[in-house]
Write a protein that binds this DNA or RNA. Structure first.
Lengths: 341, 341
DNA sequence: CGGTACCTGGCAACCGCTTGCCTTGGCTAG
DNA sequence: CTAGCCAAGGCAAGCGGTTGCCAGGTACCG
């Protein structure tokens, strides 16, 4: 049988109350007794029962993280960051994978958040309304998504696209494609907008919207054919997996990357895997997770607070960085006519 | 404030005891009252406090999964399977990532297992002794590792290697390399053994042991150079990431895959990513996870039971399947002399 | 030297739920 | 008609901690 606080108290010759205080509020107990209790606890291998403690204190010491797909390196990276930071702060993490099912996601949040001090939600596709309702009276931080009145941590998609566009522009590209993520994805909408702003406003590039694709290599394969058919010299993909699929498909179709078409990914989840290695907008995924944990536990992210004050200091945006590798190069010189420049 | 059982009882006009029974042991309560309680619970949006319930029942409804690296698709896959099965069975899952640190791993098991009904441990590198000690009086199932007296779920590494070897043999390869995983990895030792048994015993192939490598693409890059230097026509890697690294490095070094060298991976974690697509020994990762959950919750996997009976029905081995894709082909005909056959 | 303030530590209630035991009352059987 | 039985539901005791409140002791002050 595992040692309880009463056992420790008995062994130390004090009351349970004193034992409790000695361990969790040491300054309230005289050093001599405190030492006695500590020794007893040590000897008995005492570990407080977190469930019992949670019952009285109202805090469980647990967090909960809901993601659509742990197999997606994006979310795996976030989960790692969450996990690590939570551990440093003495919290355990419930992780729930919804298999991309928004209904299940909501269900998981409802079930698990009750057992945790706070919940981190990655839910790219849930409707704003449902998400707002779901997070109304819960202690929640949104990850990679923004919603008025809810604390959140996102990445600077606008700047990411700006960097990507500037890079392509410098390489001489003038017509570029965008292979988007799933319909309804919040971050995809932000990326698409960011791209258009940067392309039109900044550099007067033309953008061809190729449509929506599954955020996977297979999705990218489909996109690849559209890229091949469009008269563009570069394409930016919703994420790295799509970019990988596009690159591969173009190769199969006899187009060279980057000689014929440049490809840029997003997230930097695949590193140098693939050939040529992917140029991509890098996100520090683990940091995304750890910052979210901090925000969640800071107490600043209390229910409805941001809504009440109108302040948005609870909305954090993380910087991104373009990493140039092998899939981008100078735009091909058009073979159409003899007019140079 | 959230509704408690007393609230429900009051609303239904019964005692808390009756309310409790109506909800968790309906057959003990007369239908009329039961309906009353159910309605009240419904109206109040009652959700039992799992921590409190756990305090009395001793069961928390939580599981715990400890893995060395969530970013590794192998463990992400297992985690998905665990998560899904646990959810079906009404359990929540604590996931802990140890960042490949065996000491931290042990610590996590100790801390988290107390809050859970059972623990799933993926710990490829911990020493047998430490692992045995750690799992001595805990309800634990080992995943992808076997230890006498402890329930476990593994994959049939021997058969996997047998299939790989048979494939290579049929293609005419006679000298093959093995690019191993990290020193001390349990599954790597099994795979290495399996390979040797299959190669020597079955087909009289020669095996060149290339050594130990980090189970990552980068590890594979290093291995690639050794492959290039060894006079072998095929190589089997510890896992897919290593295989990917090898393939890429060989390409850089001017060797063609599979024309010059055939490459086989293990785990099937990268799918058709990479070019050519990787031939690999496929594992059903999610199934590995879900079977482990079943074993854990079956009650069969009780502490020390297998040790007592000597039975090994608590040690499950899952089948694997060679998936032939593009990185394996006929052995090159030696250009050394003119003697054909 | 008496009074007071302060520091320590114990008592006991309580967090929300489960469950052993007992009471009550309606039936059946002898 | 009464004894016996069973079903239904309430009482209360926890599960393992925490914490408000109070008592006793000590030190310090006047």
């Amino acid at each position: 049988m595992v040692a309880t606080l009463r056992d420790v108290a008995r062994a130390a010759g004090v009351s349970p109350a004193t034992a409790s205080r000695a361990l969790s509020a040491p300054e309230l107990v005289a050093p001599a007794r405190r030492a006695l209790v500590e020794k007893a606890a040590q000897d008995l291998g005492y570990r407080p029962n977190l469930a019992a403690r949670g019952l009285t204190t109202g805090r469980t010491g647990n967090l909960c993280l809901v993601v659509p797909d742990l197999g997606n390196p994006f979310f795996a990276g976030v989960a790692k960051g969450v996990q690590r930071r939570a551990r440093e702060l003495g919290h355990a993490v419930f992780v729930a994978d919804s298999d991309e099912d928004a209904r299940l996601e909501a269900d998981l949040v409802e079930r698990l958040s009750a057992q945790a001090d706070g919940t981190l939600v990655c839910s790219p596709r849930m409707s704003d309304e449902r998400l707002a309702e779901l997070t109304a009276d819960r202690h929640v931080v949104l990850v990679n998504r923004r919603l008025p009145g809810r604390p959140s941590v996102v990445v600077d998609n606008t700047d990411g696209m700006r960097q990507a566009v500037r890079h392509l522009h410098a390489l001489g590209h003038r017509r570029i494609g965008y292979a988007g993520g799933p319909e309804g994805s919040w971050s995809d909408a932000r990326r698409r907008d960011g791209l258009k702003v940067a392309a039109h406003g900044l550099h007067r590039l033309e953008v061809v919207d190729l449509g929506h694709f599954a955020p996977t290599v297979v999705g990218g394969t489909a996109a690849g054919d559209l890229v091949a058919a469009a008269s563009i010299t570069a394409v930016i993909a919703h994420n790295d997996l799509v970019a990988l699929g596009i690159t591969e498909r173009l190769r199969v179709r006899g187009r060279s990357v980057p000689a014929d078409v440049s490809v840029i990914g997003y997230d930097d989840t695949v590193g140098t895997l693939g050939h040529p290695a992917l140029t991509t907008v890098a996100i520090r995924l683990a940091r995304l997770g750890s910052v979210a944990v901090d925000l969640l536990l800071d107490g600043r992210a209390s229910t409805g607070r941001a809504a009440a004050t109108g302040a948005d200091e609870d909305d954090i945006s993380l910087p991104v960085e373009l990493v140039v590798r092998g899939t981008t190069g100078p735009a091909p010189t058009p073979p159409t006519d003899g007019v140079s420049r």
